[in-house]
């Protein structure tokens, strides 16, 4: 029963996603690849879409995966699944567990989780970078000069923007610039 599966898998992800949307990416990746729901390639392309459309990344991913597997009902159930743990926990915190987030053991639990979340996000970024510039899995590497050039360009634009405007470049602007870079460089070569 794909609908129940979507609901429970995303419920599980919603329950264990501490630290925002990026921390969720590796969990969703593991899910879609283990179940053969999406190709890795398509999944990474979709993260680009999540970053440039409104709404939390978690909701966007659940809706997309749900829709590809079970149409409209699938997307609704996957989204409900990912939201429900937060919804229930916040209502519990607001009513009976008002002091829970001050609990000593709970704070230690969160302290223990932190380095795991940082490791999850950093390694995801590194793996994505390796794949973008030519890692094919099974220890095969075909260097992609084009992507290396674009990545260097992005780093340069980010640093220049930070020096000139003294703040971080807007995410959507950065994605639009890289998309244009991708189109221009591909047509030129």
């Amino acid at each position: 029963m794909i609908y129940l599966e979507l609901f429970f898998e995303f419920f599980k992800i919603g329950l264990f996603t501490f630290g925002g949307g990026y921390a969720m990416i590796p969990l969703v990746k593991e899910l879609v690849i283990n179940k053969s729901w999406l190709s890795e390639e398509l999944f990474y392309d979709f993260i680009g879409v999540c970053e440039s459309t409104p709404g939390p990344i978690a909701i966007n991913m659940a809706t997309f995966v749900g829709s590809t597997q079970g149409g409209l009902l699938g997307s609704i159930l996957a989204t409900l699944g990912v939201v429900l743990p937060s919804f229930i926990i916040i209502i519990l915190v607001a009513t009976i567990l008002t002091k829970f987030t001050n609990n000593k053991h709970f704070k230690n639990f969160l302290q223990g989780i932190k380095p795991i979340i940082v490791a999850l996000i950093t390694s995801t970024g590194l793996i994505l970078l390796a794949k973008a510039i030519g890692y094919n899995s099974n220890f095969e590497f075909t260097i992609n000069d084009l992507s290396i050039g674009i990545f260097a360009g992005i780093c340069l634009i980010y640093s220049i923007y930070k020096i000139v405007f003294k703040k971080k470049i807007n995410t959507i602007l950065l994605i639009v610039i890289s998309a244009l870079l991708g189109v221009v460089v591909s047509y030129l070569t």
Binding site: V118, I150, Y158, G182, V183
Partner: peptide, 20 residues
């Protein structure tokens, strides 16, 4: 365009991780 976007996403996630 997605050749570029893929690089941007890698950059954004890696940067977020390093910031953290």
């Amino acid at each position: 365009a997605f050749v570029g976007i893929k690089c941007a996403v890698a950059f954004l996630i890696l940067r977020a991780g390093l910031d953290m």
